[in-house]
Amino acid sequence: MSAPVAVSVEKLSKVWPDGIRALDDVSLEVREGEFLAVLGLSGSGKSTLLRCINRLIDPTEGKITIFGRDVTSAEGAGLRALRREAGMIFQQFNLVKRHSVRDNVLSGALGRTGTLRSLFLLFSDADRAEAQACLDRVGMGDRGDSRADALSGGQQQRVAIARALMQRPKLILADEPVASLDPALRNSVMRHVEALNREEGITVICSLHDLDLMKRYATRAVALREGKLVHEGKPEDFDLATLKSIYGQEAEFGFGEAS
């Protein structure tokens, strides 16, 4: 645990205007190179936590820094520069459906492209070569000209990973990246996220609800329940008793006694 801190979350709370407290005094630290899984039931605040880190959501209280720079007080160009450091992957992929796969990946470079050029989708040759390399990396190199909505879910998510990679991020925020996919395809997507973590040293924060995936890919995990951080530890620390405290006594776990 000697690596420098990548993301620090201090006393983070989010209260929606309708009074729902999505996050309640959450504090955690993520070191560079870690693969942190965030566990919890739907509605436990996982997604809100990830979206606060790149300020897609403004937190109500608390402070977040990524790589030592304060996100919570950043505005305008400063905020956009911080967002570029963090690639995001979504449960619903969120590709621009009517654009080609290549243009979707190129949109990862928007943060460093001039506004006028980007309005007409004029990206440099260097950007185009980089986009091709990102696509090759996720095994989609031959699908650059397809329309995004012509791809299967697993393929779309791989394109979304390529788009995040195009940002040249130091951090990946993955919000339930495989929850919408067929279970048989989940590992094919998770392996690409893992590769970015292992080979590029990109820090990953990934919300999951599948415990097998957590045990296989995460180096550390935290659990949220009703917006509160209720558990933190190595994947192997999450035994049956812990899981029941997170998911409730009625929960059943397919693998029986956690090993």
Partner: peptide, 18 residues
């Protein structure tokens, strides 16, 4: 898609365009 484009660090006009 708006959120995704915003997350890349794109500006307002870029978010609208993409």
């Amino acid at each position: 898609p708006m959120d995704a484009i915003k997350a890349t660090g794109a500006g307002t006009l870029q978010v609208l365009r993409y």
